[in-house]
């Protein structure tokens, strides 16, 4: 009946999502009458001292685990899950977590519910609600059997709840080692940003609805009129229309401006996770069912090419 939380870390820092999952994991462990265990895969067990909210920290320790590598980490975590047979395994739906959650599911046969943003125990069953279809629908799902792996969207639960004080029992787990096909080479730092979008009070953020790079001028003019900077969702950056440093969301940065103007952004979960804490959110999208309207304070369901120039003019005229 135990809950096992995978502890994600990079350069000696534990990811916030892992604390979020420890907090949620404690709640689930109490409801299931089990223990809360943290799974740490690293070159040493030093980070265990920061995991006071867990009952046990299960450590797979080897020099080769100093940096994340998909195959080595997956094999170690799958071995841990097989031996300890937890009822629930919680993993962040992050870049690293996506190699682990599906990998451990296929390796162990334990079903996976991905993109979860709500998890509860109801009548003894573990039920997770997942954001599917680009955030347009929610699916409330449960495993057919007892065990389940859940990968949760970052920012879904309180991190503070997982930062409790305590002295967990540290156990060393003899995990399989060896590269198994993927070898870490190096970390590549992000390219220097021309504008730090995390420090802006006003962001005009542009998505797929802008259609091409030439149209960016329309939103740049709005950003200029508001005295803000231009940011973007993933498709704009993947297409090379704006630099990576301007990307908001899961593989970009998280922002909390006073005003976030979402222009032509549908609002996939990966984007929402990076901007939902902005003080005021105004969204323009031609699809009235776009999930961005679920997090925005104000919504405009119209063609951005009609609205944005009119708005820019109106702001300029004071």
């Amino acid at each position: 009946m135990d809950v096992l939380v995978y502890i994600e870390h990079l350069n000696g820092k534990i990811a916030d999502v892992s604390f979020e999952l420890l907090g949620k994991g404690r709640e689930l462990a109490n409801a299931l009458g089990g223990k809360l265990d943290a799974a740490l895969i690293d070159a040493n067990s030093d980070l265990a001292t920061q995991l006071g909210s867990a009952d046990h920290v299960v450590c797979a320790v080897d020099a080769s685990f100093a940096q994340f590598s998909p195959m080595a980490y997956k094999n170690a975590l799958a071995a841990m899950v097989k031996e300890r047979a937890p009822r629930v395994v919680l993993i962040g739906n992050t870049s690293m977590g996506m190699d682990l959650a599906a990998g451990v599911s296929a390796a162990t046969g334990i079903p996976l519910i991905a993109y979860a943003n709500h998890i509860a125990v109801r009548d003894g069953a573990v039920v997770a609600t997942a954001m599917v279809y680009g955030g347009k629908l929610f699916a409330e799902a449960e495993p057919e059997g007892e065990q389940v792996i859940i990968s949760a969207l970052a920012g879904s639960f309180s991190a503070d709840a997982g930062k409790g004080e305590g002295a967990p029992i540290v156990e060393i787990f003899a995990a399989p080692t060896g590269g198994a096909g993927t070898q870490f080479k190096q970390l590549i730092q992000p390219e220097a940003a021309d504008v730090d979008i995390t420090k802006q009070d006003i962001l005009v953020s542009v998505g797929r609805g802008i259609q091409n790079a030439d149209n960016l001028e329309v939103v740049q003019e709005l950003a200029d009129a508001l005295g803000g900077a231009l940011s973007a969702s993933r498709p704009v950056v993947d297409n090379g229309w704006l630099p990576k440093a301007r990307q908001v969301g899961k593989s970009g940065v998280s922002v909390k401006p006073k005003l976030y103007f979402a222009v032509g952004i549908s609002g996939a979960p990966e984007h929402i996770e990076g901007m939902k804490d902005a003080a005021t959110i105004i969204a323009i999208n031609s699809d009235p069912n776009a999930p961005i309207f679920e997090v925005a304070d104000y919504g405009i369901a119209a063609d951005l090419f009609d609205i944005v120039p009119a708005l820019t003019e109106r702001i300029k005229s004071g």
Binding site: L10, S95, Q189, S251, G252
Partner: peptide
Amino acid sequence: KEYAGGMMSEFTVS
């Protein structure tokens, strides 16, 4: 492989 914040990790894959 892309991580958060524009950081990337490079791997050799067999």
